[in-house]
Computed example of a mutant assay.
Amino acid sequence: MVRTPLTPWERQRGEELGRLLREARGGRSMVEVAARAGLSSETLRKIETGRAPTPAFFTISALAHALGLSLDALAQACADVPDPAGEAMTA
Rank of each mutant, 00 (worst) to 15 (best):
P5Q: 14
A35E: 15
P53D: 15
M30V: 04
P53M: 11
E32Q: 13
L17T: 07
T59H: 02
A52W: 02
E42S: 12
T59P: 01
A34C: 04
L39V: 02
G14Q: 10
R28L: 10
E10M: 09
G26D: 14
V2R: 14
V81S: 09
W9M: 05
T43D: 09
D80F: 00
S70V: 04
P55Q: 13
G26R: 12
T7C: 04
A91T: 03
W9N: 10
S40W: 00
S61H: 09
A85P: 00
F57M: 08
T43H: 06
I60P: 01
R22V: 02
A56C: 00
S41V: 00
G26N: 12
L6N: 14
G50Q: 06
A64M: 03
M89P: 00
L39E: 09
E16T: 10
A52S: 15
P8Q: 12
V81D: 11
Q12E: 15
P55S: 13
S40Y: 01
D72G: 10
D83Q: 02
A34V: 02
V31K: 15
L6P: 00
G50L: 06
E42N: 07
L67P: 06
S61N: 06
S70C: 08
L44D: 04
A75W: 06
D72R: 09
A35L: 05
R11M: 13
S40D: 12
A66C: 07
I60L: 10
A34M: 07
R51W: 01
E15M: 09
A73T: 11
E16S: 06
A91S: 11
A64I: 01
I47G: 04
T4N: 12
G68K: 09
T54E: 14
A24H: 07
A34F: 05
G86Y: 07
P53N: 14
E32A: 15
Q76K: 05
R45N: 09
A91W: 11
L6D: 15
I60D: 02
T54D: 14
E15D: 12
A66K: 05
A56Q: 14
D72W: 04
G38L: 03
L20H: 11
S70L: 04
S61Y: 08
T90C: 01
A66V: 08
L6W: 07
G18Q: 11
S61W: 05
R3T: 11
L74C: 03
R28Q: 15
E42A: 12
S29M: 03
D83R: 01
R28W: 10
R19G: 03
A88C: 00
L69S: 10
I47E: 07
K46D: 11
K46W: 01
L67W: 13
T54N: 14
L17V: 02
D80N: 10
I47Q: 04
P5M: 13
L71I: 09
S29D: 13
A73K: 07
P8Y: 06
P53S: 13
G26V: 05
R19P: 00
L39C: 03
L74K: 03
L39Y: 03
P82Y: 06
A85C: 01
E48G: 03
E10G: 07
E10A: 14
M1A: 14
R45D: 05
I47Y: 04
A24C: 06
R13W: 03
T90I: 00
S41Y: 02
I47W: 02
G18Y: 05
D72S: 13
L71V: 10
L17H: 12
R19H: 12
R45F: 02
F57V: 12
T7K: 08
E32D: 15
L44V: 01
E16A: 11
L39M: 08
